[in-house]
Amino acid sequence: MTFFERMMSIDRRIIFLFVALAVAIPLLRPLGFPVQVSEEVRSFHKEMAALEEGDIIMLTFDYEGDVMAELDPMAIAVLKDVFPRGVKVVALTTYAGGTGIAENHLREAAEVYGKTYGVDYVFLGYNPDWSGTILRLGESFKKTYPTDQYGKNTNDIPIMQEVETYDDIELICSIAGSALSEYWAIWAGGRYGVKVISGNTAIQAVLIYPYYQAGQIPGFLGGLKGAAEYEKLIDEPGMGIRGMDAQSIAHALMLVFILVGNIGYFFSRRAKREELRKG
């Protein structure tokens, strides 16, 4: 076995170890790489910055525990951005597993900023059927959600007296772990004309560009990097910024793997060809 062949048959656990170190070391010893803000995040922030005291936004927690490392920093940053400015929040989730996550974040942020449930914010909870829920909200919030997440009739919740349809909210901010932000843009934005901005996992973010360029989603946060950029703009460093050094080093390592893997592949292929030629 040649050196390159041995290199190609390396135990996968050695690769795993390198990945773990590439993530752990920068977390322990931060390198302080500067975070540059992209145009799409700037646009997202512009929409949020335009909100005024008393405005109501809809914040949708369209994700579960699987992608919370990417999306939690966004949801937390949005609440840190709007609550101190007196913007009210109508929150909901289109994922059954999103209920617990939304409850935790809303409760923690409300405690920090002294917000009252039912007056400054409400959590409507989960409804089955994404598209049906999005369209029905366009006709009536209270009929779509007869109760909030805690079984309280929405007719008796103060903030819900101000919200009947999408006309009564300034924008929808969808923090989504799947194509949900696209669906908000299609059904809430397309049919009812409400403004939709989004926070997406990195995998999903690459699919948002056509909506962004067409103005259907006028701003979005892509992955943990997007969260870090937004944290920088609102001057609230959080999990996003803290993770950026590790993200950079891990990406560099991945590229080294691709490069070394290709070098090994081409040299071992050349060695094999030469062997065949020699017979």
């Binding site: 993530v23 990417e70 995998i203 690459v206 992955g223």
Partner: peptide, 16 residues
């Protein structure tokens, strides 16, 4: 590229 970015972010979350 974005896929790699997403997976690494999830790992960073667990390590954090």
């Amino acid at each position: 590229g974005y896929n790699v970015m997403g997976r690494v972010s999830l790992l960073i979350g667990r390590f954090q």
